[in-house]
Every structure is written in C-alpha cells, then in structure tokens.
Design a protein around this nucleic acid. Structure first.
Length: 685
RNA sequence: GGGACCGUAGCUCAAUGGUUAGAGCAGGGGACUCAUAAUCCCUUGGUUGCAGGUUCGAAUCCUGCCGGUCCUACCA
C-alpha cells in the first residue's frame, strides 16, 4: 500500500445527451470503488469531465441558434446535477473544452510529432457549400458507384457491400442542406498506430491491464493485422481545438477526449496544490479507467499508444463493463425503459439503484439486467427487511439508556463479522460487488437470527431484565453498524444516518473492527422507505412521455401537459433535399394488407410478408422489423407500402416493395398505419 | 456467414480439476409479534444446454452440435 496512490476515471459523458440509467452503471460502479478505496485509507482521486467537441455538437448548436459554449455549459450543469443526485462524488469534474486540455493536446501532439508518428495525407472529401462544412461519411448519400443502387451512405453500399470513399458516390447529396457537395481536398493528419504494434501487443496481452475477454478480443480483431492509421484531424469548420501547426485543421473529438482525463486531473492539481507529474508521470500512481465495452478500441489501443509515445503513465487497468438491459431487453424509449437520471430521482431514492447495481455487478463485462420485479423485491427484502430492520427492531429499546459501556458477549458474532470484513474488502477491490453484497447479506441474516433468539421484546416486559435488554440491543446495533460500514461505498447516506443514530460517525473501514460502546442513541426514524411498485411504474410511464419532452438543451423545464417534441429525431436524420410534387408522385404509396407473415429463421432482422393490394394482387416484401413485431401482430394488419419500387433480390428471396416505418431500427421500428376506412390498393396522396 | 462472450433450481447468481453442485428471491409448511406484513425455523426444487473425449476424479479442460447476447455482413 504505502506510497501508492490511485487515479480513477469514468468515461466522459458526451455533451449531446442526458444521463440515463445505462450510463449510471458505470458511474455508480466507479464511485463505489473510489469510495471503498478512500474508506480503506488509500489516497485516491476520481476525475471526470464533459466531452464537448465534435460535429454533432456543432450541428446541434446551429439548429438551436446559439453558440456551442452555451449548449455545452447547460449540458454540463445538467450532468453534474444528475451525478450529485446519485451521490456520485468526483474530486473534480472538468470539461474537454478547457484551457488545460488545449495545453495538453498541444504538448502531446508535439511529442507525437517528435516520435515521428504523425503522417499527413491529402484527403479528398465532400464539402457542403451551403452549410459551409465538410461532410462526414454519414452526412452524404448518393448512388453506389459499383452496383448503382441509389441512396447509399458515403462509406459503403448496403446492397453490394462495397466500401468506397464518399467522393466516389454518383450524384452525392448533403443530408444537412440537400445541396450538391463539391469535392475539396484537405490535408488530414494521421497517427500511425502500427508503429506501436509491438508495444501494444505486449501491453494488451500481458494479462495485467485488461480482462482476459478484452485481451482476446483485441488479439482476434485488431492485432492480427497491421493497425490502421488513425485520422485525428478535421478541417474547418469544426467545434474543437485548432491544431497549431496545421492551419485550418482541428483535432478530432476522439483525440482530445481522453486527454480530458489528464486535463481534469490538472485542474484538480491546481486547486489542491499538487503536481500533475506526480499523477501522470509517476510509477507510484495507479491509473484506473472505467469504461463501457463500446469504447474498448480507443482506450485499449489508441490511448495507450498515445500515452506511451508522449511519455505519460500507462493505465494500470482498464476496467470494462457491459451494457444495461431492462427486463431482459435493450432500453427502449417507447417502452419507457430508457429512464433518465433526473426522471428516476423524481420518483425513487438513489440508494435503491446503487444497491441493486452493486448486487449485480461483477468483474466481467457481462451485460447486467434491471428486472423491475427483481429490483423491487431485492431492495425491499435486503435493505429494508434485513439491514435497516436491525436498527428498527432494537434502537427504540435503548433510546433512553444508550449503548452499554462494555461490549457484552455475543457468541462471537461481532468478531466473525469483523473477520469477514477482509473477504468483503477483497471483493470490493476486485470489483466483485455482487460477492461483497452476498457476504454482507449473510451477516445480516445472522444478526436477525440473533434478535430472534434473544427476543428483546420479551426482556422489555421484565424489569429485572433491563440490563440484559441493553446488552442485547448493544449487540444488535453494533452488528447493524458493522453492516453500514461495509455498505458505506454503496450507500453513503445510510452510513451517515447510522452515524447520527449512534452518535459516532463512520470514517474508516477499520471502524468495523471495534465495537462501539457507551454512546447515546438518537430517536429512531426510518432510514429507508420501501419501494412502492406504483412509483416504479409511474417512473416508467413518465419516461414514455419524456421522449416528447424538451431535450438536453432545456434541462430545467419540467414535463408539461402539452407534449413538446424534442429535435433529437430530426437531428439523427436531417431533412432530405427539397423535392417537387412531381418527384413525390414518382413514389407510389399504397395501402396493403398483410395476408401472410412468415419467419425467416436464418435472417436476423428480416420478416417475409405477403401483402395484398386487393383482388388477386399480392406480392412478397421483406421487411427488417423482426425485432419489433411478432408474426401474430403483423398478420392481417394494414400497412403502407412503396408499391412501385424496383424489386430487389435479397438473400432469402425477391422483395417486391417496401413497408414504410419510422424509427432508428432494432426494436424501435414503428409501422405506418392508416385510419379505418382505407382499403388495400388505395393510393396515398 | 465470420469473430468475441456465455449457457448451473421457476428467477438472479455461487462453486482454485477434488466430499452428496450451493445461496438469495419466488413456492409449500410452521413459529413469533420488537420491527416499514418486516423476521426466524423447516421444506419442495437439478440428467450443470446436448453428445463425445482427456482424467483416479469434470459444472470446471478439449472437440462437435444446439441455444442466447454483442461486434460485423442482408433493415428496397
């Protein structure tokens, strides 16, 4: 232990969206670990920041007609408020849009230059003359140069699978303005990661810094081939930092985002009179990153490569966790299971979620499931029924007398639990919170059994037994306090309440090793309320509506009775270029009835539909709606199809049309219906 | 189709290659009445996805199937 100190980071939330229950898995996991380390007396600093740069922010700010700085300031305030609400306690929370970050980017950049890791290449890119911006691949659509399929994104063709540059597209169109983009050459800068290949191979495969699944993944996916050069620049205009030695170029958001870890540390250092080198260029400092599995590549290859080249410390460990599902499914806005942090807090105590996540989290990167019924049962049963119940059934008996002056015989319960503390600590340290919670609940069971056997309520009735009553309650409250100490990283508020109840604050893990005696006992008040299922359901209901709430930019606005739709959907998929009525009439939309819906077992997304346009007029259509609709739901219903679409040969057969639907895909697909009265074959005008 | 991970009681999960595979919750039976209908005792529940193999010994290691999740190829 000695001099070693810990620097801990959680991934930087992007300034384009609010914190939801999925994000909180990571912040709660990290916060618990940090609180545990601090409680154990280790020097540990927890930093984070908002990730603020990039095209998405620039476009959004434009849409909202205000400067980026305003947008990201609002969002950061909302993020910090959400974190505070969940008792996530950073030592410093910064922003990637800071002076310190810019300084560090420059410093690291010049190191990369000196190490000869930067390559320059001219890249032909499409430029939108109306929006005045270069277009990322997904902002360009056009006809595939190989198979001539129209309406393809700029990186590859969804029909023939060919990959190409957006400049190869025939008749490209900007999805931002609808303008025809022009080709413009720009100088791009690349980090030649391949030059670090040998080092990264050794670092990732050493078994010391990554979970084994992650190391295997990298080996199989990336390290078997030469590592691709990383394009880390974006031409003007771009919301970010200008690259000093490359006019009109900005660092790509993924370049400056991880450097934000260092910048935030630096800001913390300035506040606390510490030296940055002591934290980022010091073997005695262990750096621990906590991230989700979606950003593995950046943190396990690109980031170590950059740090190594620039002479900063490498992470001691990159801890990667899985995603959150709700009731076994991906979070869904329409089902109300993508619950925003602020919505949760309106209905429920943050302790519930902290405990539930703790009881599910292990050191692996498995996804964890928030099953609503289990959530309610587990929290009520474990926290209220077992832990808090101990205080509830003993504290009132000693409100007047306080705790006994000497710790009485308890059959070895306290010392057993004290010894178990080491196993619990080890579980916390290894991020196996589920194991820690299991051990703690076993101890709670034993303590409840003790109450049962000693029956303080019987002792109370007999005046000659009042000394014994005080002894028994002293034991029970000490066992309760021990549990609170062990739960402090997860439930800091409960630890405080326990301190107030027994008039002795919990300040260190070692408090669990010595019984508390002779203190007064405060008047007992309920420490936690049970979860009422209605509240959980109300939260889900509100989350269903909240897709229509004003988004990100106006976080302080409360949900109102009249729906206010956010601009998110439009932002995800900007308007297509203007078309004429003639253009529109080229598309023949028809009402059709699904007369047969069939599974395509081998297909992951597709369902085979036989639709009728009335009379004998039927056709086969494949639709990518497998995840969103069951066969039964589809059978017989009316849909709107594109009836004059060029038939397309797909893997499982010929598709003679297209079913219209909205939504991003997956389970979030919503078929177009039609009001009753319409009949198959009618055209949509 | 390719790759990564996983499959243990109704549910969520334990179990360094080593007794008869265990907990919690749910279910069933009883007890208690201090406690937020909480708690305590007893109890039902398993071909460890399937089939082989290695081994004195396999939930664990190997091979092949089956099934699931994720990344990636088909949401005309």
């Amino acid at each position: 232990m000695s001099d070693r100190q810990l620097l801990v980071t959680a991934a930087l939330p992007y300034a384009n969206g609010h914190i939801h229950l999925g994000h909180l898995v990571e912040y709660i996991q990290t916060d618990i670990w940090v609180r545990f380390q601090k409680l154990r007396g280790r020097k540990c600093v927890f930093v984070c920041a908002d990730d603020t740069h990039g095209t998405a922010i620039m476009i959004r700010a434009r849409h909202e007609g205000r400067p980026e700085s305003e947008l990201i300031a609002d969002m950061q305030a909302a993020h910090e408020r959400d974190f505070r609400g969940f008792d996530i306690e950073f030592d410093h929370y910064g922003s990637t849009n800071s002076e310190e970050n810019y300084e560090l980017c420059k410093d690291i950049w010049s190191s990369l230059r000196q190490a000869n890791l930067i390559a320059e290449k001219d890249v032909e890119q499409l430029f939108d003359p109306v929006a005045g911006t270069f277009l990322a691949d997904r902002f360009v659509k056009g006809t595939c140069p190989h198979c001539k399929t129209p309406d393809q994104y700029g990186d590859n063709c969804s029909k023939c699978g060919e990959t190409y540059a957006p400049t190869d597209l025939i008749d490209p169109v900007s999805t931002l303005s609808g303008a025809t983009p022009v080709t413009k050459s720009a100088n791009h800068l690349f980090v030649q990661l391949e030059k670090q290949h040998e080092f990264l191979e050794q670092w990732t495969q050493s078994g010391e810094h990554l979970q084994t699944e992650v190391a295997n993944y990298l080996k199989g996916h990336f390290l078997g081939n030469p590592l691709r050069d990383w394009d880390v620049s974006r031409p003007d205009p771009y919301f970010g930092f200008a690259i000093p030695d490359s006019p009109n170029n900005y660092w790509y958001v993924w370049f400056d985002a991880p450097i934000g870890y260092i910048a935030s540390t630096w800001q913390w250092c300035k506040k606390n009179n510490e030296s940055l080198a002591d934290w980022w260029k010091n073997d005695q400092t262990e750096i621990h990153h906590f991230i989700g599995k979606d950003i593995t590549y950046f943190h396990t290859l690109f980031w170590p490569g950059v740090l190594k080249a620039a002479g900063y410390s490498l992470p001691k460990f990159v801890h990667i966790h899985g995603f959150l599902t709700v009731d076994g499914e991906k979070m869904s806005k329409s089902k109300g299971t993508q619950v925003q942090a602020s919505t949760y807090l309106k209905h429920l105590d943050p302790a519930f979620l902290r405990y539930f996540y703790a009881s599910k989290l292990g050191p692996k990167l498995d996804d964890i499931d928030l099953n609503i019924t289990e959530f309610i049962n587990k929290v009520n049963s474990d926290l209220v029924g077992k832990v808090v119940n101990l205080a509830s059934r003993s504290a009132r008996f000693v409100e007047t007398t306080g705790l006994a002056v000497e710790y009485p015989h308890d059959g070895g319960l306290f010392s057993t639990a004290a010894i178990a503390g080491e196993r619990i600590a080890q579980a916390y340290d290894e991020l196996d919170y589920a194991r820690a919670m299991r051990i703690i609940m076993e101890l709670a069971d034993q303590a409840n059994a003790y109450v049962e056997n000693t029956a303080p309520w019987t002792l109370k009735k007999d005046p000659t037994q009042h000394v014994r009553l005080q002894e028994v309650c002293t034991v029970v409250l000490n066992l309760f306090r021990q549990l609170c100490i062990y739960l402090t990283p997860v439930l800091p508020r409960l630890a405080n309440q326990c301190g107030q109840l027994l008039n002795a604050n919990i300040s260190s893990w070692s408090d669990s090793q010595t019984p508390l005696v002779g203190t007064t006992v405060s008047k007992f008040e309920h420490l936690l309320q049970r979860i009422a299922p209605e509240k959980v359901h109300a939260m889900i209901e509100e989350s269903k509506e909240s897709t229509q709430e004003p988004a990100a930019t106006t976080p302080t606005v409360e949900a109102s009775a009249t729906p206010v739709d956010s601009g998110d959907a439009l932002l995800q998929e900007p308007l297509a270029p203007t078309c004429t009525i003639e253009d529109f009439t080229k598309v023949d939309l028809r009402v059709a009835r699904i007369i047969k819906a069939e599974e395509v077992p081998e297909a992951k997304k597709l369902v085979k539909l036989t639709v009728s346009l009335g009379g004998d007029n039927t056709r086969t259509v494949f639709a990518g709606i497998k995840a969103a609709y069951s066969i039964e739901q589809l059978q017989g219903r009316l849909v709107v199809i594109v009836a004059n679409l060029l038939p397309r040969q797909m893997k499982f057969g010929l598709s003679e049309g297209m079913v219209t639907a909205a939504g991003p895909g997956g389970t979030e697909v919503f078929l177009l219906g039609i009001d009753s009265g319409a009949v198959p074959g009618q055209r949509v005008h």
